[in-house]
Design a protein around this nucleic acid. Structure first.
Lengths: 139, 139
DNA sequence: GTGTTTGCAAAGTGTTTGCAATTTA
DNA sequence: TAAATTGCAAACACTTTGCAAACAC
């Protein structure tokens, strides 16, 4: 698996959002943004890092996920009341959540025209559709 | 505030789902189902109980929420990745989630015809709409 | 009386934080 | 070298669990 992002680009992207390009942040940025969309938890990203031989603490993974989210590089996905998931796709879109495995997949936009999609992944049945309209007080 | 449910009815309803009508379960059932729809967390229900002079432990509140959910009397609402909310309305419907206060309100069904409701509560603005299509493996 | 349920306290899980050591600019 | 970042371990919030005492039937 080739990593197409040169250091300079990763550095530039981090600087662009006001974050110092430390070894840990660069490595995590590569894992997250180097190969298409990902859906991660702190734990899963930490494991990816370990497998990739990246020395980084779990605390730093948590901090980095928050910083990237605040910077708009990641978006939190709420599908489980006991774990936080993060999505590298920050565009407006929705998700399949596989209850059995805890995995998440983007719903292709052409399938979400009706709220309840009729075209589900193979061997999967609908558990339920959750729609949460999140509000905040006006300024 | 009058409690319209006679003991016999609460007992019958609990028995109907295979749960012994203990003092704690009856009292929690009254709190939950006695006065229209409620959206609770373990902590909020525990506080309601305390305010109402009901002696029940937090552990029992957790256990009871699970039992009621398994029995189909409650439904879990996933809006926060660190707390579990339960809704006494188990019919298909959706929610407003007030990020500032952590409160939940049902979305009146006539407002959810378009995915993004145009008619929001006063002084509230849209943070975002989360749609999660929850799937499980076929049998 | 027998099996179920409760309450407590301890343990568990995911997450955050204080702070000294390290790294970046 | 000044400020930001890291990693560790301790602290945290929420939730679950083991087990003896209390309760329901």
């Amino acid at each position: 698996m080739v990593d197409l992002q040169p250091d300079s680009e990763v550095i530039r992207n981090l600087r662009a959002v006001g974050l110092r390009p430390t070894r840990q942040r660069m490595a995590l940025a590569r894992l997250l943004f180097g190969h298409g969309n990902r859906h991660v938890t702190a734990e899963s990203l930490y494991e990816s890092a370990q497998r990739g031989g990246i020395r980084v603490s779990l605390a730093t993974v948590y901090n980095t996920l928050h910083q990237f989210t605040t910077a708009g590089l990641l978006r939190q996905v709420i599908v489980d009341s006991s774990r936080s998931y993060y999505d590298t796709n920050v565009d407006e879109h929705h998700h399949f959540y596989f209850e059995d495995t805890g995995e998440i997949a983007d719903i292709p936009s052409d399938r979400i025209n009706s709220i309840v999609p009729t075209d589900l992944p193979d061997n999967m049945e609908l558990s339920r559709v959750d729609i949460v309209v999140r509000l905040r007080g006006t300024a």
